[in-house]
Nucleic acid binder design. Sequence first.
DNA 1: AAAGTAGGCAACCGCTCATCC
DNA 2: CGGATGAGCGGTTGCCTACTT
Length: 322
Amino acid sequence: MEEVKGSENNSNITMLQTEDEMDLRRGPWTVDEDLALINYIATHGEGRWNSLARSAGLKRTGKSCRLRWLNYLRPDVRRGNITLEEQLLILELHSRWGNRWSKIAQYLPGRTDNEIKNYWRTRVQKHAKQLKCDVNSKQFKDAMRYLWMPRLVERIQAAASTATTTTTNNNGSPSVTTTITSTNNTMSCNLNTNFEVHSGNTLTPIIMNNNLCGSYVTQSYTPENSSNGSDSFGTQVSPISELNQDYYNVPVGSNNNNNNPNCDYFQQAQQFGFLDCITSPTGLFPQMDFNSVEPNTPWINQGDNFWNDENMLLFQQLNDNM
DNA sequence: AAAGTAGGCAACCGCTCATCC
DNA sequence: CGGATGAGCGGTTGCCTACTT
């Protein structure tokens, strides 16, 4: 469908519009339009979108050109499914900042705010719908933090354990060795980075890609202690995030020197220290043993069908204990 | 196989805020 | 100071596709 701005049914509006405005195109972009925009920006650079649209001969608003460029035509836009690592990062960053899509997008190189927003509105809200609760409710936030996000971590670990045993990155960075061992109280895992899970307590980053990145404080997470710093989403903001405040202001930037951009995301995630917050709170939910993970548990390859009977039961137990 | 339905996503709109001239 | 412009955000629309009936 190719719409032209200015409705025939609204003569008053039409009369007020200039001839150029009436010619403005809407709807899907054509290949020719894309090429025109790309070529113009390649020659003249971006910015000043309204004049750019006119100069490039595009019968589009500057706003439309800007959106098309930022969300689709930019060379560094990533296409394809949101990865597990990206999902994890989105969940955590949204828990901190709410619907600050643009800010969240800064930490997912190549992903646009629109894409993240769409992901949230379709996938995440679908989970809330399955649980019959509001996406902004404490109930759902707890489910995300204590069920969904730990599962994502485990799925990432499981995927890494099968996909990468010993690999060497093309850029010559240190090889990634993935080993998952599970004991009663501790699970150690190397997954781009190293960390440990301590039973019922916290997840403590140790080394970031063979670099010790700042000081990390191990802390216990206590859901009731909401007075100790919580954001608009009602989730815990750990002191670690304050220690690493610089990371908030320094977007990841490009991934052009790394063939595995997910490495960046997960590194960011751990730099935030958010993995601290997604293990079971001590004593409050002892039946949730996130550390005894079997690689072949049914949820690992079930895609979005996360809320199976088992997890629904856990969700119910979580609510009973909160 | 055809029709209906639901989900995903690109694109848009309206609004607000910041910056520049 | 005020207008123009850019940028960001929430919400919505409409198309396409996959799935279901």
